[in-house]
Design a binder for these strands. Sequence first.
DNA 1: CTTGACACAGAACAGACGTTCGGGTATATT
DNA 2: AATATACCCGAACGTCTGTTCTGTGTCAAG
Lengths: 225, 225
Amino acid sequence: MMMVRKSKGLGERHHKILDFIESYQRKSKHPPSIREIGENCGISSTSVVNYYLDQLEKSGHIERDRKISRGVRLSGPNPLGDLLRVPVIGRIQAGEPMPVPTSDFNYFNAEDSVDIAMSLMPAKEKSNKHLFALEVQGDSMIDAMINDGDIVIMKAAQEAKNGDMVAVWLPDRNETTLKFFYKEKDHFRLQPANPTMKPILIKKNDPLEIKGKVVMVIRKMDSVA
Amino acid sequence: MMMVRKSKGLGERHHKILDFIESYQRKSKHPPSIREIGENCGISSTSVVNYYLDQLEKSGHIERDRKISRGVRLSGPNPLGDLLRVPVIGRIQAGEPMPVPTSDFNYFNAEDSVDIAMSLMPAKEKSNKHLFALEVQGDSMIDAMINDGDIVIMKAAQEAKNGDMVAVWLPDRNETTLKFFYKEKDHFRLQPANPTMKPILIKKNDPLEIKGKVVMVIRKMDSVA
DNA sequence: CTTGACACAGAACAGACGTTCGGGTATATT
DNA sequence: AATATACCCGAACGTCTGTTCTGTGTCAAG
């Protein structure tokens, strides 16, 4: 009685091997050897492991550095990869000036930080220079589709292009707000992310301070258990 | 003429080795061997490399897995850290059934995937098992504070606890929706994340299918340039 | 029945690799 | 001057490791 797993994409052993490589790498911080894969996947011969590894390489699931010890890794842009550590420099809420990074930007005295996979970042932001994060406090940003507790990743900026989502300080209203920015004939249009809500129009003479551009918003649902 | 570098913390070679390990790991995705370190740092003897590696280990700069090929890595909380690779298995929009993971969903038949730093995940979700992601299409989730283009990280589930944000399929309305879930005396209350909006009440007899719990929401502002 | 693809085992080989040991040369200390 | 210490080299050893080759049994197609 043999297992029949022909012509299907991946067999049980393929999965087992992929799982093992992944967990081994996570625990040991380096890839497993062929023999270690065999022992942990119930394969007694190194040649059989090599046999499967070849298949997984051809199908693009793994990459191998031939002739090199433990030169096997899960493929993909970033099997375990580059993180950006973005400092959380404070909280943002309406009615108070927004915290902005100091010029020194020595981000190690930051109380906290969040790790973002580089692959999540837009191409231009691959350097964590000028990136910082804020935790949103209160419901004041709901018209920007941003909730209490959300984390906003920002890039310091004093100017913006049309379509950027920016953090602006409106001295007239004594308010920090996050809106899409559009420069139009004789005014700035601050468009809420929520399409059911109406924009704020600011005359070009009126004060308006752009504090930064929003790069990303992250909302964690901690209650999941 | 010899270099004098006594009694100081780290010498020139220590830094050179640390830099090399870091850049080698980044490029080759696996650690260098002792001989490779030697060649690239101008050290002709493996024993000297070993000599420095021992020092760097004692001083806590690196960690070593003895007897194991390429068992050297930079130490620290997150030299390059753990990512969860979550498969994006489809799009979600109101009026259509939500895609759910197949039993085979774990690997790369997923068209795309997103990388999430483990440090961002709630403690219980440290395994990418049962995690999947959906891209939200359309504005139908605005009352869940979720916008067009957002990425929702979900955990497959058929049940939910009070306070969980869940994806539910309402056959009566022919609608998939994301709401906070509360079980009450004689009905289920589906509470929108937006506190200005009113809940949906579902009688306990009426049909209601929980598809999964929302773990995280990610919004990328790609327009930043 | 024959053929061939497929899955697997075992052994053997050649390098790669970490480790160790004996020796060497400066500089500083006693 | 003698000793200690830090730094460094080369070689040898034994094991780890990827690769390759031969052989075996299964199964489906011709």
